[in-house]
Amino acid sequence: MKEYKIILPLVEVSVLNQLHVGDKVYISGELFVFRDQVHKKIFNQEIQQLIGINFRYSGLYYCAATAPKYGLPVGSCGPTSSYRMDDYTEAVLQLGVKVMIGKGYRSEFISSLCRKYNAVYLITYGGCGAYLNQFVKETKLVAYPELATEAMYKFVVEDFPGIVSIDVYGNTLWNRL
């Protein structure tokens, strides 16, 4: 298990070529944060609210956090199950997202999509929302406020941890177990 630090959005997408399944990654920079309902909107091209937002070489975290407390930028903020986004994922990758972060296994075709779009999927610590809070430094509501809990946010993170579970070569961690 090698360890890497990467900054999102990426400057050079080739940075992802060095990551292999099982490697640990610490992410700093910005992450888009959205899940089921925003995926459906992007898939259905209901994207007027996204005009002017740049997704090129960005990271995406599947999460709906609890509200902030005690002056913290966010509450508990662990990942949600990624497989529910699978059918909508190609539309999101077409926007320019390169790093997806969530929990759990995904459909076989996500490996092909990672190869096709030079993207990776990381699993982070599911069920550890309080622990993951400490890596989130700022949050901002970006779009779809009407979706409440499921609105689109941006997180500024420092050393947010993940384990490479699908790499740009289409290898999956669980097929190697």
Binding site: K69, G75, S76, C77, G129, A130
Partner: peptide, 11 residues
């Protein structure tokens, strides 16, 4: 962390 900070164990 959850017990110390009173952030819920899971979001």
């Amino acid at each position: 962390v959850a017990s110390k900070t009173k952030l819920p164990l899971c979001q």
